[in-house]
Nucleic acid binder design. Structure first.
Lengths: 298, 298
DNA sequence: TCACAGCCATCCAATTATGGATGACTTCAT
DNA sequence: ATGAAGTCATCCATAATTGGATGGCTGTGA
């Protein structure tokens, strides 16, 4: 006959909740689905298991007889879940996170330190770069991306948006004319292989005959140049607020409007196969909490 | 976490069939479906349950831990099916009993006949041998053992003890000297693979330079040799009393003291998961009643 | 008497799952 | 060395399932 085991689960839920609707809510199923599934189970069994009333559903005699087996299955299913939880309760192992260089340095690295203090059994490997790694192939477990993924196998767990702002050293800002425009600034930009990054492209779009005054492929070098007064760079505002004790400390935010579209987003992405791995979940939770604090600082 | 109960069913089928393809065939599912469903279960569990090989799939340690719960669910699901089919809680199905050869022949076989007369819907399979089968793996539902189990998952339902005595044919006994010693007897013993049985070892301990006069791996052959006057064999006294109408009828009990430790026990053992299965419980009740009559005859 | 809230059953567009085809791999027999 | 037979994983057209919308019913309170 081959009763579907999940149907027995639904059957038990209906009994415990006292109604098909209640069971549907508990199991996060549609009420039509619950109704149909129970009807199919009854068809397979050959007689009614519930007597439907407007107040709910009551077990028939046949349903009463099925109940002990369903309850025992539920007990063993719970054992299975506890078993699995015990086995995987302590997340451990390496989690590889891919992130753009600035994010890698300012957000992920300090976060890794924080996670490691609490969870020494977790190793974090940060892949700093801008290539879209193949999460499905295991090239990274998690990815922080500035573009929303459109691959159906990828899940966007969380995201944070931020205004993009212009930052310089105080000394550099002091020697600017009043109300400077974008073209009045010397720009610090990304060198190859990062030349195609969005900030570079936006500056090219906004400034006629745009030429970067300084370029580097190393984020830290760019920040050092900015602090040394070489020029200006575009950064997410939340990074400036967030990294109070980090490299961005001491940079001055210019009061220059980059336009309504000057908003950057950061997406926490993973492959759906990895989503429930305990070690990945642990790190995702930490990143989400950082996103929470980023949102509150903004 | 909410493991899908049907996924556990698939998991168990893979284990029992030894491959994803085999499980797919058994369950009349597509092999890609089976492959994906197991992958999804593993994703939810957070680690691999099977080690895939070209020869099939082998349980990992995590899979081993999940197995008992899945097996128990299967048993209760089967109960649910039987329940539904019969509309009454009439135990039915196959019960496999493992027992040492002599016990299998003298006790279990006649008992099986008795049970079948009253309960034709119960099938009994007797596994005659001395290996300690893995009850947890479902290799047998019940076990009659001469050693008390110490596995925490096994339950000793009942047990019976008996003095061990020496038996020969009357003709053989008639030609013995008065008050013969153990060394005066020709011994009928177990051949490989049963050579390590306890009676063999006890004789080796009691008789210097002990050599069996006759060995066989077949219990019936040993009894036939004994009746034919080849020599003596050690048997539990209750078996001789019990099997009044059986093969041991006609054997003569010698008045030889084997010592105070010459006591054998028989334990009725099952796995705690099977304990409350109606079919198993029915057979256990019958065996316990046989133990009762063995104790009274002693 | 009437409105409301809960229930269940049905319809059908949207979503998800399935499995045939396929490729890659390993093992075994010739 | 080679072909056959088994395994597993992936793709994607097709089939199956889901659940929002809806209607009908009952019980309850104003």
């Amino acid at each position: 006959m081959n009763l579907r085991w999940d149907d027995l689960k639904l059957f038990l839920a209906v009994h415990e909740q006292g109604s098909l609707s209640g069971a549907a809510r508990l199991l996060k199923l549609g009420q039509p689905t619950l109704s149909r599934r129970i009807a199919e189970l009854e068809a397979m069994v050959g007689e009614a298991l519930f007597e439907r009333q407007s107040q709910g559903a009551i077990l028939t005699a046949a349903g009463q007889k099925l109940l002990p087996a369903a309850q025992s299955m539920a007990e063993w299913a719970n054992e299975a879940e506890l078993n699995v939880k015990k086995q995987t309760y302590l997340p451990e192992g390496k989690v590889r996170i891919a992130a753009p260089p600035g994010i890698a340095y300012e957000v992920v690295a300090p976060l890794a330190a924080k996670i490691r203090r609490k969870h020494p059994q977790i190793q974090i490997e940060v892949l700093s770069g801008v290539e879209t790694l193949n999460l499905g192939r295991g090239e990274a477990d998690l990815s922080l991306r500035t573009q929303k993924p459109n691959d159906v196998d990828l899940v966007c767990i969380d995201d944070v948006s931020s205004a993009m702002r212009v930052y310089t050293s105080k000394a550099y800002a002091a020697q600017l004319p009043p109300h400077p425009g974008l073209a009045d600034l010397d720009w610090i930009c990304w060198a190859a292989p990062y030349a195609e990054l969005r900030t570079n492209q936006e500056l090219s779009a906004l400034i006629p005959n745009f030429k970067a005054a300084f370029t580097s492929d190393d984020y830290i070098v760019q920040v050092a140049a900015c602090k040394a007064g070489v020029g200006a760079m575009i950064l997410p505002q939340v990074l400036h607020h967030y990294a109070g004790l980090r490299e961005l400390h001491g940079l001055h935010e210019l009061d220059i409007d980059l336009g309504p579209d000057a908003v950057g987003s950061l997406y926490l992405v993973c492959h759906k196969r990895h989503r429930y791995l305990p070690k990945v979940q642990l790190v995702m939770d930490y990143i989400s909490r950082e996103f929470d604090s980023l949102r509150q600082d903004a």
